[in-house]
């Protein structure tokens, strides 16, 4: 609760620079999405999105100048979100009968099962 974090005014220049970076990021994502890199497409899109989100959080939302408490709160949120995603997805990935995965992106449509199948159909 120190006084300097209280009255920190972010210069307009910074805002404009961040806006420019966000636009460049958007353009980059759309450009890359034209090509089929398989799994890489998602990874690139998510990486760019994460960078954009970080910029928004740090500068538009002033976290770069905020108290440590704010940073901890955000870190905790992201950590718990990661638990939710990670612990669930590992279950799906290590199931023995769960063969339809990210690696099958390149498979032609004919090889896909015609009728939708539940992923967790058990043994």
């Amino acid at each position: 609760m120190s006084a300097h974090s209280e009255h920190h005014v972010v210069p307009v220049k910074v805002y404009l620079a961040i806006f420019g970076a966000l636009m460049v990021g958007t353009a980059l994502t759309v450009f890359v999405a034209q090509f089929n890199f398989g799994v890489l497409n998602v990874l690139i899109a998510l990486t760019v999105a994460c960078i954009k989100a970080t910029l928004v959080i740090l500068f538009f939302m002033h976290v770069a100048y905020s108290s440590r408490l704010t940073k901890v709160v955000i870190g905790a949120g992201i950590f718990w979100f990661a638990i939710l995603i990670f612990m669930t997805i590992t279950d799906y990935r290590v199931r023995q009968d769960w063969h339809v995965g990210l690696g099958s992106l390149e498979k032609p449509a004919a090889e896909q099962p015609a009728a939708p199948q539940p992923s967790g159909s058990g043994h």
């Binding site: 718990w80 638990i83 612990m87 590992t90 279950d91 799906y92 290590v94 199931r95 023995q96 769960w98 967790g120 159909s121 058990g122 043994h123």
Partner: peptide
């Protein structure tokens, strides 16, 4: 407490490694 929820699902089709 957030890392243990799968123990309710041992008899569902959850992976046994998980």
């Amino acid at each position: 407490g957030f890392l243990v929820w799968g123990h309710h699902m041992f008899t569902s089709s959850q992976s046994m490694y998980q």
